[in-house]
């Protein structure tokens, strides 16, 4: 009996941590730009649906853009420290400005310094991809970058109607990860770019499994998910990266991609 109680307590704890997944955001309010312009980005480590706890980012190892014309361009120097305000607390985050001038796709990749998650006694590193497009011509959104942990899109991440779907392949060093575990979360508010804060929550989850939705890739590492509402949807393939340890502790090296659905109006 005692054992049973203990195990349900463990389940309860696990339940809480899985109900609110960590998500590294590389956020800009519009990923489908009409013309070339300088855009603002916010780099925040949070739980985007519930918005109950904002983590202190431990730093950034890499941040760069990839375009057809200029190849890989280091953007690490463009990052500035900010404090991001969530519903219950504030956390260390970054902001940056990016000159998205050339027509076509701009793939932005950020590799944060692993974050120590005390509750689980592990490090988490979410290699994050956000794709923006200028003027509508495609040239590189589907590039496979051979990252340690990566979601390669099969749908343009910036060109999906509300109610449409997103398909991607989970990969590690260019190889598909069969049956990868993927968490899905919606940015359940409109982030306030001026005041570095999350806005009020828009929707309520009927139950915890809707806060962070858990799905799995198929045998080829592919998954499809329908996006019921306009806005930003994050996909995070858990622990698929090839690095498994950091500072003597377990490392969950995850792959994150952000996808934006647009309202039909």
């Amino acid at each position: 009996m005692k054992k049973l109680v203990l195990s349900s307590a463990v389940v309860a704890v696990l339940g809480v941590s899985s109900a609110m997944a960590h998500f590294q955001m590389v956020y800009t309010p519009n990923t489908a730009l009409e013309k070339g312009q300088t855009i603002e980005m916010k780099h925040v480590f949070t739980h985007p649906f519930a918005n109950e706890h904002t983590m202190d980012m431990a730093g950034v190892e890499e941040f760069y853009s990839i375009t057809e014309k200029n190849g890989k361009v280091d953007l690490k120097d463009t990052l500035k420290s900010i404090t991001w305000k969530g519903k219950h607390n504030s956390g260390k985050a970054y902001e940056s400005k990016y000159k998205a001038r050339n027509m076509g796709d701009h793939v932005l990749v950020m590799v944060p310094t692993p974050y120590y998650e005390k509750n689980e006694d592990i490090y988490i590193q979410q290699i994050t991809k956000t794709v923006i497009n200028v003027a509508g011509t495609p040239n590189g959104w589907d590039a496979e970058l051979g990252l340690k942990a990566e979601i390669v899109p099969l749908t343009k991440p910036y060109s999906i109607w509300e109610g449409g779907s997103f398909t991607g392949i989970v990969k590690s060093n260019g190889k598909p990860v069969p049956f990868a575990e993927i968490e899905v979360e919606y940015i359940n508010n409109t982030p306030d770019m001026k005041n570095n804060a999350m806005g009020p929550n828009k929707y309520e989850a009927p139950q915890d499994s809707f806060v962070t939705m858990g799905i799995k890739a198929n045998k080829d590492g592919e998954f499809t998910f329908a996006l019921p509402k306009a806005g930003f949807w994050g996909f995070c393939a858990l622990g698929v990266g090839s690095d498994k340890e950091y500072k003597g502790k377990e490392l969950s090296q995850d792959a994150v991609i952000w996808v934006e659905a647009k309202e039909m109006k």
Binding site: K35, M103, G104, V134, A135, G136, P138
Partner: peptide, 24 residues
């Protein structure tokens, strides 16, 4: 496919226009 163009001012008295198509 539809034709697409995006132009920017180079800030030195010149303008660059890039052309393309919706299929890349």
């Amino acid at each position: 496919h539809s034709a697409i163009m995006s132009c920017f001012d180079n800030g030195d008295g010149s303008v660059t226009c890039e052309g393309g198509f919706s299929d890349g």
